[in-house]
Protein backbone atom coordinates (compact mmCIF):
# COMPACT_ATOMS: atom_id res chain seq x y z
CA UNK A 1 0.00 0.00 0.00
CA UNK A 2 2.76 2.41 1.06
CA UNK A 3 4.67 1.45 -2.05
CA UNK A 4 1.63 2.15 -4.21
CA UNK A 5 1.25 5.63 -2.69
CA UNK A 6 4.92 6.37 -3.18
CA UNK A 7 4.74 5.19 -6.76
CA UNK A 8 1.65 7.29 -7.43
CA UNK A 9 3.32 10.43 -6.00
CA UNK A 10 6.40 9.70 -8.11
CA UNK A 11 4.31 9.39 -11.28
CA UNK A 12 2.29 12.49 -10.45
CA UNK A 13 5.45 14.49 -9.83
CA UNK A 14 6.91 13.62 -13.21
CA UNK A 15 3.59 14.25 -14.89
CA UNK A 16 3.15 17.65 -13.27
CA UNK A 17 6.71 18.94 -13.34
CA UNK A 18 6.72 19.85 -17.04
CA UNK A 19 3.35 21.50 -16.60
CA UNK A 20 4.76 23.55 -13.71
CA UNK A 21 7.60 24.68 -15.89
CA UNK A 22 5.21 25.50 -18.69
CA UNK A 23 2.99 27.69 -16.53
CA UNK A 24 5.60 29.18 -14.24
CA UNK A 25 5.42 32.93 -14.58
CA UNK A 26 8.26 35.27 -13.87
CA UNK A 27 7.49 37.60 -11.00
CA UNK A 28 7.32 41.26 -11.88
CA UNK A 29 7.89 44.00 -9.34
CA UNK A 30 5.65 47.00 -9.75
CA UNK A 31 6.62 50.16 -7.97
CA UNK A 32 4.51 53.27 -7.47
CA UNK A 33 6.48 56.33 -6.48
CA UNK A 34 4.86 59.32 -4.86
CA UNK A 35 7.68 61.22 -6.45
CA UNK A 36 11.19 60.85 -7.64
CA UNK A 37 13.91 63.34 -6.99
CA UNK A 38 13.39 66.19 -4.64
CA UNK A 39 9.88 66.23 -3.45
CA UNK A 40 7.57 69.16 -2.86
CA UNK A 41 4.09 68.96 -1.49
CA UNK A 42 1.78 70.31 -4.13
CA UNK A 43 4.44 70.09 -6.76
CA UNK A 44 4.73 67.20 -9.13
CA UNK A 45 8.02 65.99 -10.44
CA UNK A 46 7.69 65.08 -14.12
CA UNK A 47 9.34 61.71 -13.62
CA UNK A 48 6.80 60.68 -11.05
CA UNK A 49 5.19 57.63 -12.54
CA UNK A 50 4.61 53.94 -12.30
CA UNK A 51 7.57 51.70 -12.95
CA UNK A 52 7.94 47.98 -13.25
CA UNK A 53 10.75 45.53 -13.68
CA UNK A 54 11.51 41.86 -13.96
CA UNK A 55 12.77 40.54 -10.62
CA UNK A 56 16.11 39.37 -11.91
CA UNK A 57 16.99 42.41 -13.95
CA UNK A 58 18.83 44.52 -11.44
CA UNK A 59 17.95 48.11 -12.15
CA UNK A 60 16.43 47.86 -15.61
CA UNK A 61 13.15 49.42 -14.73
CA UNK A 62 10.59 49.86 -17.43
CA UNK A 63 8.27 52.81 -17.43
CA UNK A 64 4.56 52.12 -17.53
CA UNK A 65 3.03 55.60 -17.10
CA UNK A 66 1.59 57.84 -15.64
CA UNK A 67 3.61 61.07 -15.65
CA UNK A 68 2.89 64.16 -13.56
CA UNK A 69 1.04 62.28 -10.89
CA UNK A 70 1.78 61.45 -7.30
CA UNK A 71 0.93 57.77 -7.16
CA UNK A 72 -0.11 56.42 -3.77
CA UNK A 73 -1.27 52.97 -4.68
CA UNK A 74 -1.98 50.52 -7.48
CA UNK A 75 -4.27 47.62 -8.20
CA UNK A 76 -4.35 44.79 -10.72
CA UNK A 77 -7.29 42.65 -11.62
CA UNK A 78 -5.73 39.22 -11.08
CA UNK A 79 -8.16 37.02 -13.05
CA UNK A 80 -7.52 39.04 -16.18
CA UNK A 81 -3.75 38.74 -15.64
CA UNK A 82 -3.26 42.46 -15.35
CA UNK A 83 -5.34 43.50 -18.34
CA UNK A 84 -7.09 45.86 -15.97
CA UNK A 85 -4.85 48.09 -13.87
CA UNK A 86 -5.69 51.04 -11.67
CA UNK A 87 -3.61 53.71 -10.01
CA UNK A 88 -4.47 55.77 -6.95
CA UNK A 89 -3.15 59.25 -7.69
CA UNK A 90 -3.53 62.77 -6.43
CA UNK A 91 -5.56 63.50 -9.58
CA UNK A 92 -7.97 60.62 -9.08
CA UNK A 93 -8.15 57.03 -10.26
CA UNK A 94 -6.38 56.27 -13.53
CA UNK A 95 -7.17 53.03 -15.30
CA UNK A 96 -5.69 50.95 -18.06
CA UNK A 97 -7.80 48.42 -19.92
CA UNK A 98 -4.95 47.09 -22.07
CA UNK A 99 -2.18 45.86 -19.75
CA UNK A 100 -0.88 49.35 -19.08
CA UNK A 101 -0.38 50.41 -22.70
CA UNK A 102 -2.81 53.33 -22.47
CA UNK A 103 -4.35 55.06 -19.50
CA UNK A 104 -7.43 57.10 -18.74
CA UNK A 105 -8.53 59.18 -15.76
CA UNK A 106 -11.75 57.48 -14.73
CA UNK A 107 -12.83 59.61 -11.81
CA UNK A 108 -14.19 63.15 -11.91
CA UNK A 109 -13.14 66.25 -10.02
CA UNK A 110 -14.85 65.05 -6.84
CA UNK A 111 -12.26 62.32 -6.27
CA UNK A 112 -8.83 63.68 -5.46
CA UNK A 113 -5.73 62.81 -3.43
CA UNK A 114 -6.55 59.11 -3.71
CA UNK A 115 -4.75 57.01 -1.10
CA UNK A 116 -5.66 53.52 -2.15
CA UNK A 117 -7.41 51.59 -4.92
CA UNK A 118 -8.52 47.94 -5.31
CA UNK A 119 -10.48 45.78 -7.75
CA UNK A 120 -13.19 43.44 -6.66
CA UNK A 121 -11.47 40.02 -6.91
CA UNK A 122 -13.96 38.82 -9.50
CA UNK A 123 -15.65 41.68 -11.32
CA UNK A 124 -13.25 44.27 -12.80
CA UNK A 125 -16.11 46.73 -13.15
CA UNK A 126 -16.26 47.03 -9.37
CA UNK A 127 -13.46 49.21 -8.07
CA UNK A 128 -12.99 50.77 -4.67
CA UNK A 129 -10.85 53.76 -3.79
CA UNK A 130 -10.22 55.87 -0.72
CA UNK A 131 -9.04 59.41 -0.15
CA UNK A 132 -8.87 61.99 2.66
CA UNK A 133 -12.53 62.66 1.86
CA UNK A 134 -13.82 59.13 2.31
CA UNK A 135 -14.51 55.85 0.56
CA UNK A 136 -15.73 55.56 -3.04
CA UNK A 137 -17.02 52.75 -5.22
CA UNK A 138 -17.81 52.25 -8.88
CA UNK A 139 -19.75 49.34 -10.34
CA UNK A 140 -19.31 50.39 -13.97
CA UNK A 141 -15.53 50.51 -14.31
CA UNK A 142 -15.28 54.16 -13.33
CA UNK A 143 -18.01 55.70 -15.46
CA UNK A 144 -19.66 56.80 -12.24
CA UNK A 145 -18.53 56.75 -8.61
CA UNK A 146 -20.48 57.02 -5.39
CA UNK A 147 -19.17 58.11 -2.03
CA UNK A 148 -19.89 55.67 0.80
CA UNK A 149 -19.16 57.40 4.08
CA UNK A 150 -22.03 55.89 6.06
CA UNK A 151 -20.47 55.17 9.43
CA UNK A 152 -17.38 57.26 8.68
CA UNK A 153 -18.72 60.33 10.36
CA UNK A 154 -15.88 62.55 11.48
CA UNK A 155 -13.30 64.37 9.39
CA UNK A 156 -10.69 61.95 10.75
CA UNK A 157 -12.80 58.88 9.94
CA UNK A 158 -13.23 60.04 6.35
CA UNK A 159 -9.46 60.16 5.89
CA UNK A 160 -9.22 56.54 4.74
CA UNK A 161 -5.53 55.76 4.48
CA UNK A 162 -5.87 52.19 3.23
CA UNK A 163 -8.33 49.31 2.94
CA UNK A 164 -8.39 45.62 2.11
CA UNK A 165 -10.93 43.18 0.73
CA UNK A 166 -11.25 40.04 2.86
CA UNK A 167 -9.79 37.22 0.76
CA UNK A 168 -12.25 34.76 2.27
CA UNK A 169 -15.32 36.89 1.60
CA UNK A 170 -15.27 39.75 -0.91
CA UNK A 171 -18.33 41.32 0.71
CA UNK A 172 -16.19 42.17 3.74
CA UNK A 173 -13.80 45.11 3.66
CA UNK A 174 -11.57 46.60 6.34
CA UNK A 175 -10.20 50.13 6.33
CA UNK A 176 -7.72 52.18 8.30
CA UNK A 177 -8.50 55.83 8.96
CA UNK A 178 -7.19 58.81 10.86
CA UNK A 179 -9.90 57.92 13.36
CA UNK A 180 -9.90 54.17 14.10
CA UNK A 181 -10.14 51.00 11.98
CA UNK A 182 -13.52 50.16 10.42
CA UNK A 183 -15.21 47.10 8.90
CA UNK A 184 -17.83 46.84 6.16
CA UNK A 185 -19.92 43.74 5.53
CA UNK A 186 -21.81 45.10 2.53
CA UNK A 187 -19.07 45.71 -0.03
CA UNK A 188 -18.14 49.11 1.30
CA UNK A 189 -21.65 50.58 1.41
CA UNK A 190 -21.47 51.24 5.16
CA UNK A 191 -18.89 50.99 7.91
CA UNK A 192 -18.73 50.02 11.56
CA UNK A 193 -15.95 50.64 14.06
CA UNK A 194 -13.88 47.61 14.96
CA UNK A 195 -12.72 46.88 18.48
CA UNK A 196 -9.47 48.83 18.26
CA UNK A 197 -9.60 52.16 20.07
CA UNK A 198 -6.24 53.45 18.85
CA UNK A 199 -6.46 56.40 16.46
CA UNK A 200 -4.51 57.48 13.38
CA UNK A 201 -4.23 54.09 11.68
CA UNK A 202 -1.94 54.18 8.65
CA UNK A 203 -2.31 50.69 7.18
CA UNK A 204 -4.30 47.49 7.58
CA UNK A 205 -3.38 44.02 6.29
CA UNK A 206 -4.74 40.48 6.45
CA UNK A 207 -3.02 37.16 7.08
CA UNK A 208 -2.76 35.40 3.70
CA UNK A 209 -4.26 32.17 5.00
CA UNK A 210 -6.17 32.87 8.21
CA UNK A 211 -8.68 35.56 7.30
CA UNK A 212 -9.44 36.32 10.93
CA UNK A 213 -5.93 37.57 11.57
CA UNK A 214 -5.54 41.29 10.89
CA UNK A 215 -2.73 43.70 11.63
CA UNK A 216 -2.56 47.50 11.64
CA UNK A 217 0.29 49.98 11.62
CA UNK A 218 -0.39 53.21 13.47
CA UNK A 219 0.96 56.76 13.47
CA UNK A 220 2.02 56.83 17.11
CA UNK A 221 1.30 53.45 18.69
CA UNK A 222 3.19 50.78 16.80
CA UNK A 223 1.61 47.57 15.52
CA UNK A 224 -1.59 45.88 16.71
CA UNK A 225 -2.92 42.43 15.84
CA UNK A 226 -6.40 40.91 15.94
CA UNK A 227 -7.02 37.18 15.75
CA UNK A 228 -10.83 37.33 15.67
CA UNK A 229 -11.61 39.41 12.62
CA UNK A 230 -11.17 42.76 14.33
CA UNK A 231 -13.23 42.28 17.50
CA UNK A 232 -10.30 42.37 19.89
CA UNK A 233 -6.81 43.67 19.41
CA UNK A 234 -3.48 43.44 21.14
CA UNK A 235 -0.25 45.32 20.78
CA UNK A 236 2.76 43.32 19.67
CA UNK A 237 5.91 45.32 20.18
CA UNK A 238 8.59 43.18 21.80
CA UNK A 239 11.80 44.32 20.18
CA UNK A 240 10.24 47.36 18.48
CA UNK A 241 11.78 50.76 19.17
CA UNK A 242 9.58 52.84 16.89
CA UNK A 243 5.98 54.01 16.91
CA UNK A 244 5.01 54.89 13.33
CA UNK A 245 4.32 52.10 10.83
CA UNK A 246 3.17 52.66 7.23
CA UNK A 247 3.49 49.09 5.92
CA UNK A 248 3.18 45.50 7.15
CA UNK A 249 3.73 42.42 4.94
CA UNK A 250 3.08 38.73 5.67
CA UNK A 251 5.29 36.23 3.90
CA UNK A 252 2.76 34.39 1.71
CA UNK A 253 4.57 31.08 1.98
CA UNK A 254 5.14 31.30 5.73
CA UNK A 255 2.78 33.84 7.31
CA UNK A 256 4.51 33.57 10.66
CA UNK A 257 7.18 35.67 9.03
CA UNK A 258 6.09 39.30 9.01
CA UNK A 259 7.91 42.47 7.97
CA UNK A 260 7.02 46.05 8.93
CA UNK A 261 8.35 49.51 8.11
CA UNK A 262 7.56 53.12 8.83
CA UNK A 263 9.07 56.36 10.08
CA UNK A 264 12.64 55.84 11.28
CA UNK A 265 12.16 52.07 11.47
CA UNK A 266 14.36 50.40 8.89
CA UNK A 267 12.78 46.99 8.34
CA UNK A 268 11.43 45.07 11.31
CA UNK A 269 11.01 41.30 11.00
CA UNK A 270 9.13 38.80 13.12
CA UNK A 271 9.39 35.05 12.62
CA UNK A 272 6.80 34.07 15.21
CA UNK A 273 3.63 35.74 13.98
CA UNK A 274 4.43 39.13 15.45
CA UNK A 275 5.31 38.21 19.03
CA UNK A 276 8.93 39.30 18.80
CA UNK A 277 10.58 41.64 16.32
CA UNK A 278 14.10 42.37 15.19
CA UNK A 279 15.26 45.49 13.34
CA UNK A 280 17.37 45.36 10.14
CA UNK A 281 18.84 48.29 8.26
CA UNK A 282 22.24 47.23 6.91
CA UNK A 283 22.56 48.73 3.43
CA UNK A 284 19.56 51.02 3.74
CA UNK A 285 20.50 54.70 3.25
CA UNK A 286 17.51 55.93 5.27
CA UNK A 287 15.25 54.34 7.82
CA UNK A 288 11.94 55.68 6.50
CA UNK A 289 10.13 52.81 4.78
CA UNK A 290 6.71 53.09 3.15
CA UNK A 291 6.33 49.78 1.31
CA UNK A 292 7.53 46.20 1.63
CA UNK A 293 6.80 43.32 -0.75
CA UNK A 294 7.94 39.69 -0.61
CA UNK A 295 8.61 37.63 -3.70
CA UNK A 296 6.01 34.84 -3.61
CA UNK A 297 8.45 32.52 -5.36
CA UNK A 298 11.39 33.22 -3.07
CA UNK A 299 10.73 34.08 0.56
CA UNK A 300 14.23 35.36 1.10
CA UNK A 301 13.88 38.01 -1.54
CA UNK A 302 12.00 41.15 -0.60
CA UNK A 303 11.78 44.76 -1.66
CA UNK A 304 11.54 47.88 0.46
CA UNK A 305 10.33 51.24 -0.81
CA UNK A 306 12.11 54.06 0.97
CA UNK A 307 10.80 57.58 1.41
CA UNK A 308 13.23 59.40 -0.84
CA UNK A 309 15.98 56.96 -1.75
CA UNK A 310 14.24 54.55 -4.11
CA UNK A 311 13.80 50.79 -3.97
CA UNK A 312 16.07 48.42 -2.04
CA UNK A 313 16.25 44.65 -2.30
CA UNK A 314 17.23 41.99 0.19
CA UNK A 315 18.09 38.42 -0.81
CA UNK A 316 18.59 37.19 2.73
CA UNK A 317 15.23 37.69 4.32
CA UNK A 318 15.75 41.34 5.15
CA UNK A 319 19.11 41.16 6.91
CA UNK A 320 21.04 43.14 4.28
CA UNK A 321 19.87 45.48 1.58
CA UNK A 322 21.15 46.81 -1.75
CA UNK A 323 19.87 49.53 -4.07
CA UNK A 324 17.51 48.15 -6.71
CA UNK A 325 16.30 51.19 -8.64
CA UNK A 326 14.18 54.36 -8.91
CA UNK A 327 16.88 56.65 -7.63
CA UNK A 328 15.67 59.16 -5.05
CA UNK A 329 12.13 57.86 -5.38
CA UNK A 330 9.66 58.35 -2.57
CA UNK A 331 8.08 54.93 -2.95
CA UNK A 332 4.50 54.67 -1.81
CA UNK A 333 3.68 51.12 -2.86
CA UNK A 334 5.26 47.92 -4.21
CA UNK A 335 3.49 44.87 -5.62
CA UNK A 336 4.89 41.66 -7.00
CA UNK A 337 2.75 39.91 -9.59
CA UNK A 338 3.35 37.22 -12.17
CA UNK A 339 1.96 39.18 -15.08
Amino acid sequence: MRLTVKLLRFVLFFLCFPLTLLFAQESIVYVAPLSTGFYHTGMVIPLSALFYKAVDADTAWRYKGRPNNRISGMAFHAPSKGKYMALATHTGVHQSFDYGKTWKVTSGWQITEVNHVAYDPINPDIIYCSSPYGFYKTVDAGKSWTKHNKGLQSINAQFVSSFIIDHSNPHVLYCSTEDVAYKSTDMGESWQKMGLRIRHIRTIVQHPKDAKVLAVGTEDNGIYFSRDGGKTWGKRDTGIFASTFYTIAFDPSNPDVIYAGGFQTGVYKSTDGGKKWKQYFKGLPILDIHAIAIDPQNSNRLYAGTMGKGVYRSDDGGQTWAFAGVKNGLISAIKIESF
Binding site: H40, T41, P132, H290, M307
Partner: peptide, 20 residues
Protein backbone atom coordinates in the same frame (compact mmCIF):
# COMPACT_ATOMS: atom_id res chain seq x y z
CA UNK B 1 -0.79 72.09 10.97
CA UNK B 2 0.67 70.42 7.87
CA UNK B 3 -1.31 67.26 8.58
CA UNK B 4 -4.54 69.27 8.77
CA UNK B 5 -4.25 70.34 5.14
CA UNK B 6 -1.87 68.00 3.25
CA UNK B 7 -2.46 64.28 2.65
CA UNK B 8 1.14 63.07 2.76
CA UNK B 9 2.63 61.19 5.69
CA UNK B 10 2.78 63.75 8.47
CA UNK B 11 6.12 62.90 10.07
CA UNK B 12 8.09 63.21 6.84
CA UNK B 13 6.25 66.23 5.46
CA UNK B 14 8.26 69.11 6.95
CA UNK B 15 11.08 68.79 4.40
CA UNK B 16 8.54 68.74 1.60
CA UNK B 17 6.90 71.94 2.81
CA UNK B 18 10.09 73.84 3.46
CA UNK B 19 11.44 72.89 0.04
CA UNK B 20 9.06 75.42 -1.51
Amino acid sequence: EIGMFFPEEVKTSMAAITAS
